[in-house]
């Protein structure tokens, strides 16, 4: 057997454009929403890569494009040596055993007409991982693993609370014994006290089964807590990617800096001391993104070059990737702006 590649997932030039059709009878294509517009990154075996950004930045679309739930417009998604964008039919179905997803909305992600046993058992039956009575035994085992009592195997989703339903969704993803799980905002819809339960559970499962996560969220505190490395997206592009501690201690992209400073910290004394970078205006439409660097319309330290030339996403040392013309001087310039 060949030496295993350090990267479990390699993504190159990933693009996901959704055509916009006119309303008329002919339904001509009049434009495209560039939800994901050229992403290149990799996920290492056993790590958690966090993916943050505000709504509409394309982070969820990225997750779905990796799973081929949306077929990417361009680019490659290489998973464990296999090119997912080229897989079809049976080969694709077999791949689904290795790559799984956990959804944001614990209410929409479970079929209301199926019992918990059927929901968690379905992947097992579909892939013939167990037969006959063993399916039920396995489902009970999975429920126990995610902290649910197997006693509830015959109940329906609406009989559970949000946090419990999220556990059911996790059990379903685990049922196929995957290597890689896309966690798409798995705690955003949950109450604060329940969020921590699910975060801890995800961390436990990672240790127990050697999972690799792509953790998509808009909550930076959560992403920082759970991730080894964090990537920041803005309008379909990645603007910064760095080891977690590095990114929070030394953010080099002005957008990351603004994002970090905007997160409220649950400590009144800290809050009083903080200086916020308040970005002006709203995120532009992905239907018609700005020229050059997509962030230039809101960037406090924009220069002329930013408006015409798209900055490359390059490594500034130690795996700290930034797409900004002023990456090395951005913090200094930002400080000056705040004075």
């Amino acid at each position: 057997m060949a030496v295993q590649n350090e990267n479990l997932l390699d993504i190159n030039g990933l693009k996901m454009h959704f055509p916009v059709k006119s309303n008329g009878l002919l339904r001509r294509t009049v434009g495209a929403v560039k939800a994901v517009d050229g992403l290149s990154f990799s996920v290492k075996r056993g790590e958690t890569l966090g993916l943050v950004g505000e709504s509409g930045c394309g982070k969820s679309t990225t997750g779905r494009a990796i799973l081929q739930l949306h077929r990417p417009t361009a680019g490659t998604v290489n998973f464990d040596g296999k090119e997912l964008t080229k897989l079809n039919g049976e080969a694709m179905r077999q791949m689904r055993r290795k790559v799984q997803i956990i959804f944001q909305d614990p209410y929409a992600s479970l079929n209301p007409r199926m019992t918990v046993g059927d929901i968690v058992g379905e992947p097992i039956r579909v892939h013939n991982l167990r037969t006959g009575k063993e399916v039920r035994t396995r489902v009970e085992e999975l429920l126990r693993v995610v902290g649910l009592n197997p006693y509830f195997i015959n109940r329906y989703p609406h009989e559970f609370s949000g946090g419990q339903r999220q556990r059911i969704g996790i059990a379903r993803a685990l049922a196929v014994e995957p290597d890689f799980i896309v966690c798409d905002e798995p705690v955003s819809a949950l109450d604060v006290s329940i969020q921590a339960q699910i975060i801890n559970l995800l961390q436990d499962l990672q240790g127990q089964f050697g999972l690799t996560y792509l953790f998509i969220a808009h909550n930076l505190s959560v992403v920082k807590h759970i991730s080894d490395r964090v990537a920041v997206m803005y309008l379909g592009k990645m603007v910064e990617l760095a080891p977690s501690k590095q990114l929070y201690a030394n953010p080099m992209h002005p957008y990351t800096q603004a994002l970090l400073s905007a997160v409220p910290i649950p400590d009144p004394e800290v809050e009083k001391q903080r200086q916020r970078i308040i970005l002006q205006g709203d995120v532009p439409s992905p239907l018609n993104p700005p020229s050059g660097c997509h962030f230039h319309t809101r960037c406090p330290i924009v220069i002329d070059k930013c408006k015409v030339e798209d900055p490359p996403f390059q490594d500034y040392g130690g795996g700290h990737f930034v797409a900004c013309w002023r990456a090395t001087e951005s913090q200094e310039q930002m400080e000056k702006k705040l004075q």
Binding site: R64, L69, I101, S109, E122, V126, G169, V176
Partner: peptide
Amino acid sequence: EFVEAAEAVGVRRGSILFR
């Protein structure tokens, strides 16, 4: 999302439709 989830798990199209 539960239909997407079924698809992600590898459920065949016919089953997705009928189940």
